[in-house]
Design a protein around this nucleic acid. Structure first.
Lengths: 195, 195
DNA sequence: AACTAATCTTGTCATATGGCAAGAAGTGAA
DNA sequence: TTCACTTCTTGCCATATGACAAGATTAGTT
C-alpha cells in the first residue's frame, strides 16, 4: 500500500505541499482514476459538474461556441493541470463550457463532497488546494488581461514559456482561438519567431 | 421596523427572489451600510477580502496594473451590482485587483461568515445568491470571450445596451481599457455611432 | 472669474491582424 | 499505395486599431 502511494501520480501532485504521508493515505483513496478517449467530453454545456479532475497524461481543451457560431478555446490543459469549472462546482450552475479530450487521457477525479470534507478537515490539504485553485483562477484572469494589453506574438511567447507541451501537442487552430487570433496569423507568428 | 425594511435598498435587491418577509428580517440586519468617498479604495492589491458589497448608488471600478505599467479596467460597477473578488473571498487569497470608487458611493457590506451561514441555513437566500454570483462570474467570462470574438464597436454597443448608466457616468478612458481599446479609438467609435 | 489640469476629439500615419484562396504537408482509412 | 480529409503555410489585399500630437472642451480649485 505504501509503495503504491509513493508511485502514485497524485503523490507528485501533493509532493511539494506540507501534506504528510499519513494524510496522503486518507486523501489519495478519495480520488479515482478515469480514462477518457480522444474526443470524449468531460463536461458538456448545460451540465452541472459535481466533480473535478487532475490530468495525469494527455491534452484537454475547454471551449465555448459564441452567438455567431465561433468555436473559441477557453482553456488548454496538459499534464498536472486541474480541470474545473468554478460556477458549476461551487454554485451548482449548469456550465457554459464544453470540456473535451484532445487525446486519450488519464485523469484523477474527486467529487465536490469529498473535496469539501477534506478541505474542512485537513489543513494541509486545504492550503494545497487553495493555492492550486487560486492559481488556476488567476491564470484565466491574467490571460484575459493579456488579451487586452499584449500583442498576439507576446501571448504566444508567454504560452510557449509557460506550457511548451501545449504548443507541441495541440493543433494550431485551437491555440490560435485561445490566443484570440486566427490560425493564419498564428502561422505567421510562428514563422517570424523561428527566424 | 417593517416599514424600515420595506423601504430598504436591499429589499429591492431581494424582491424578485422567493425570499419571504420573515427571512428578510434575518437577512437585512446582517448587511451594514458603508459609504465611500470618490477615489476611496474598497480593496487594494495584496489585501484579503473578507466581505463583499452591494452597490446602492455611485460608480466603482476594479483595475489591475500589468507588467508594463498599463492601468487596465477589469470591471465597472453601477447601482445594483455585486462587488466581489472570488479567489480572495473564497480562498482567502491576496487579491490582485484594486477596487476604487469613481464617485461617492453607498454600499451594503456583508462578511463572508454571515454570507456562509445564511447560505447554508436559508435556502431562498442560497438560491438568490447563487444566481447572483454565477451571473457576475459569467459576465466576466463572456466579456473575455467578447474580447476575442467581437469587434470593439460591438463590445461598446453591448455595454451600452447592458449598462447604459456606466456609459453615461464613467470616463472614456476607463471604459476604453475595459473594452480593450485606446481612448482614441473609443472616441472614434462614439462618433461613428452617433451619426 | 481665472487658472490649471484632466478629459475628449480629431488629424495623419503606421502596423497588427483578418479575410480569402491556393497550395503544401501531414494523417488516417480502405 | 491511393484517396480523401484535415492541418498548416503563404500571398495579396483590406481594415480595425494604435501611436503620437495638437486642439477643444470640461471640470476642479483657489
Amino acid at each position: 500500500m505504501d509503495e503504491k502511494i509513493e508511485q502514485h501520480f497524485l503523490n507528485t501532485v501533493f509532493a511539494s505541499s506540507g501534506i504528510t504521508k499519513e494524510e496522503l493515505k486518507t486523501i489519495i483513496p478519495k480520488y479515482s482514476q478515469v480514462n477518457f478517449d480522444k474526443n470524449d467530453y468531460l463536461l458538456k454545456e448545460g451540465q452541472v459538474e459535481k466533480k473535478y479532475w487532475f490530468l495525469e497524461s494527455g491534452f484537454i481543451r475547454s471551449y465555448v461556441v459564441d452567438t455567431e457560431g465561433n468555436d473559441i478555446t477557453f482553456n488548454l490543459y496538459g499534464s498536472g493541470d486541474v480541470i474545473i469549472d468554478y460556477p458549476s462546482i461551487f454554485f451548482f450552475a449548469p456550465t457554459r463550457e464544453n470540456i473535451q479530450a484532445l487525446t486519450d487521457c488519464v485523469c484523477w477525479e474527486i467529487t465536490f463532497e469529498d473535496f469539501q470534507e477534506m478541505f474542512n478537515c485537513i489543513p494541509n490539504y486545504r492550503e494545497q488546494q487553495r493555492g492550486l485553485l487560486v492559481g488556476s483562477y488567476f491564470a484565466l484572469k491574467e490571460h484575459s488581461i493579456s488579451l487586452i494589453a499584449d500583442q498576439a506574438k507576446d501571448r504566444y511567447l508567454k504560452l510557449m514559456k509557460d506550457k511548451p507541451h501545449i504548443i507541441q501537442n495541440v493543433s494550431l487552430k485551437h491555440i490560435a482561438t485561445f490566443l484570440g487570433i486566427t490560425d493564419t496569423s498564428l502561422s505567421r507568428i510562428r514563422k517570424e519567431i523561428s527566424s
